[in-house]
């Protein structure tokens, strides 16, 4: 096996889904939940998810 494969970190693949308690406001371009904007919710505040599955950018550090 190639060294890059041998050294790769293996995890379970997980499908990324939207926040369960929020709705997307298309006109405003934001997700909102009961507390306000999801983007400023501490649970998501530093999320890096651009759902960039193809580049894997958001898989780093997982």
């Amino acid at each position: 096996m190639h060294i890059l494969q041998r050294k790769a970190k293996t995890t379970e693949h997980r499908d990324i889904s939207g926040p369960e308690d929020a709705t997307y406001d298309f006109d405003s371009g934001v997700w909102r939940n009961a507390a306000g904007l999801v983007a400023y919710d501490p649970r998501h505040a530093q999320s890096t998810k651009k759902n960039d599955i193809e580049t894997g950018e958001d898989q780093k550090g997982q």
């Binding site: 371009g29 997700w31 999801v38 983007a39 400023y40 999320s47 890096t48 998810k49 651009k50 759902n51």
Partner: peptide, 19 residues
Amino acid sequence: LILSSLLDFPTDRICHNLT
């Protein structure tokens, strides 16, 4: 024009500031 994806929350912040 913002070309993004649904779960890119930082882009929400940009939209919020633009608004």
